[in-house]
């Protein structure tokens, strides 16, 4: 097997706040091959978005990558000079954010913005840029792409705007796309269209995709592998079907049981008690222990990292493996 496209090892991104150090990402490791779709799942504050921002070098102070490495195509992105990072970002690594309204420049036409994105990385004539931009808009399902280049972002609907943002991310043929909750703000019918297109694009072009989401159902129908994050750490990972069918970590089980789709209509859901811990005061033990039905005195110590057959979980008292 060839070297993975992306290899993240023991990544630590901390926020140095007046109240103390918030360990938003604390020892995250994973790798990703070309053409693979990785789902990064977690609740608010789990560190999933900060992990994404760390990958593309967009962590702003007081946040800081304080440890670990991000090897992308053989090069460590941690500590890379800003101009080299800028040359990579948008060309070989692209990002799609939740809110396309905030991503797109409201005072430039879509055509102008897309031309800028191309011309930032290569010498491209205006005419060639317009042609490539129109072709990409057509590919993400925007009708009459060539005429819509002269439209401003506000002239597009929410779903169309997110397609424009995805088209911009794809413009330079990146090897990796980091997508942070890209369909959360969209209606289900539009979400389904975008999921279908993202999946096809990753398959056709061999682009690796990191899909950051709180929605297990979306991830289960899109991703090849899933990482479950809790309080800045990965608690479980593996092939998405296996992990969701037979989770080993009690948090993954709890998340699944919280979904109304997993229960009989009208019956109480098997909820996880309590709330996520403050990232400012994490104990050295398992961060999920205070909410965990299986926790005991063992869980005051850091949980062991158990790895086998492509599955990984960090737990003192894991659930039984599937028969």
């Amino acid at each position: 097997m060839s070297a993975p496209l992306l290899e993240v090892t023991d990544l630590r991104t901390h926020f140095l706040t007046r109240a103390g150090v918030a360990k938003a990402v604390d020892g995250v490791s994973f790798s990703l091959a070309s053409g693979e779709i990785l789902g990064l799942v977690g609740e608010s504050g789990s560190g999933k978005s900060v992990t994404g921002f760390s990958l593309i070098g967009l962590v702003d102070p007081p946040g800081k990558i304080v440890g670990g490495s991000i090897r992308f195509a053989g090069r460590d992105l941690v500590g890379l000079p800003p101009e080299e990072m800028r040359a990579l970002r948008g060309r070989r690594i692209a990002m799609v954010f939740q809110d396309p309204q905030a991503t797109l420049n409201p005072v430039l036409t879509i055509g102008q913005q897309m031309a800028l994105a191309l011309q930032a990385h290569a010498r491209v004539s205006d005419r060639a840029a317009a042609e490539r931009a129109a072709a990409m808009l057509a590919r993400v399902g925007i009708p009459e792409a060539a005429t819509r280049l002269s439209n401003y972002p506000h002239e597009f609907s929410g779903g169309m705007r997110q397609r424009v943002a995805i088209a911009m991310a794809l413009l330079n043929g990146p090897e990796l796309i980091v997508a942070d909750e890209p369909t959360t703000a969209l209606d289900v019918s539009i979400q389904a269209q975008i999921l279908a297109e993202m999946k096809a694009l990753a398959r056709e072009s061999g682009t690796a995709l990191i899909w950051i989401s709180h929605d297990l159902a979306t991830v289960s129908s899109l991703a090849d592998r899933v990482l479950v994050m809790y309080a800045g750490r990965i608690v479980e990972s593996g092939p998405v079907g296996e992990v969701l069918r037979a989770p080993r970590h009690p948090y993954t089980r709890g998340l699944l049981d919280s979904l109304p789709a997993m229960a009989e209509p009208g019956q109480r859901l098997r909820q996880i008690p309590g709330t996520a811990p403050s990232l400012l005061a994490l104990s050295p033990g398992c961060p999920f222990a205070p909410r965990c039905p299986r926790a005991d005195a063992d869980c005051d110590a850091p949980p062991p990292r158990v790895e086998a057959d492509g599955r990984l979980f960090l737990c003192h008292h894991p659930l039984e493996a599937a028969a």
Binding site: S157, M160, A192, A196, A217, S220, S221, P239, L244
Partner: peptide, 24 residues
């Protein structure tokens, strides 16, 4: 609408999305 909702997939089978054409 019911077809468009991503379902929790517990099997490894690949999923075909059946989106509604067009926009509101």
């Amino acid at each position: 609408l019911l077809d468009s909702v991503p379902k929790l997939r517990l099997d490894a089978a690949s999923v075909e999305f059946r989106p509604i054409a067009g926009e509101l």
